[in-house]
Amino acid sequence: ALDDAVAVPEGFTYEAINWLRYAEPAELLFAAVTGSQLDRWYRDNRFCSRCGHPTELGPRSREVVCPECAKITYPKICPGIICGIVDCSEGRERIVLTRYNGRTTALWALVAGFTEIGEPLENTVHREVMEEVGLRVKNLRFYKSQPWSFSDTLLVGFWAEVDGSDEIRVDHEELKEARWFTRDEIPLERTRDRVSMTGEMIEQFRLRGREVLG
């Protein structure tokens, strides 16, 4: 959060912010990455978007205020969803995993996406699943939410069952690949991810299978 880089004390190094995904202990990881989100927000709101006047920190809560036109700007929080698409029909226990395009170290993940203005979270699930992998889903079940400060996001996790055809049609503009995985086929590198809700949900399915559907 420094304006200018300073000399690094002996035994320390500068790291990219994504390094925090693997840092320990978890409570310090959370504090550091939340601080980085706040720093980005403060830097992006130094001037009023309405009149251009320099802003000031709010006197009582986390906001910035324009002393010229009184416009209040609250922290940027982008809602988004993560969906574990499961097929437990005919004795199966499978889940859809995807990999994003254009990432050199893309891990297998779940379908995810941001919520549009005026869109309920449940509609986001149906839209993102159809757009990314061409599937219809039913019986949505809320899992949990998680602040994800790396992208200024509040993530909401859902489980869903495939509805009808299980044929995946990949949107190659966004995804490199997507396919069904049985519990035994889930890549081991995903089971070591203890930070992201994606990793947590994949591990829950690997351990519990159809039980995640309630």
Rank of each mutant, 00 (worst) to 15 (best):
E56T: 08
R206H: 11
R206S: 11
P54A: 12
L110R: 02
P120S: 13
E132G: 10
G134I: 03
S145V: 07
V111K: 00
D87Y: 04
R21D: 05
A32K: 09
I117R: 11
T98K: 02
F142D: 03
D44I: 05
F205W: 14
R127F: 04
A112D: 06
K76S: 10
R50L: 04
A7E: 12
V156N: 09
E27I: 15
R46P: 00
D171L: 09
Q146M: 06
G84W: 02
E15V: 12
S149P: 14
V195D: 03
I202E: 07
Q146H: 02
V137F: 00
F47D: 00
V212C: 08
V64W: 08
C69P: 04
T104W: 02
R169A: 11
V6H: 14
P67R: 01
V111W: 01
S149R: 11
P59Q: 09
A7D: 09
V96Y: 12
T105Q: 09
F114M: 15
E15W: 06
D193P: 04
G209D: 01
E119K: 13
I82S: 12
D39V: 15
I81K: 05
E167D: 11
G214N: 07
R21C: 07
V195G: 06
G35F: 08
A7F: 07
E68Y: 06
M197K: 05
V156L: 02
V156W: 03
V162Y: 01
T98G: 08
V129H: 06
R21P: 04
P147A: 08
I117L: 10
G209P: 04
W180D: 00
P54N: 14
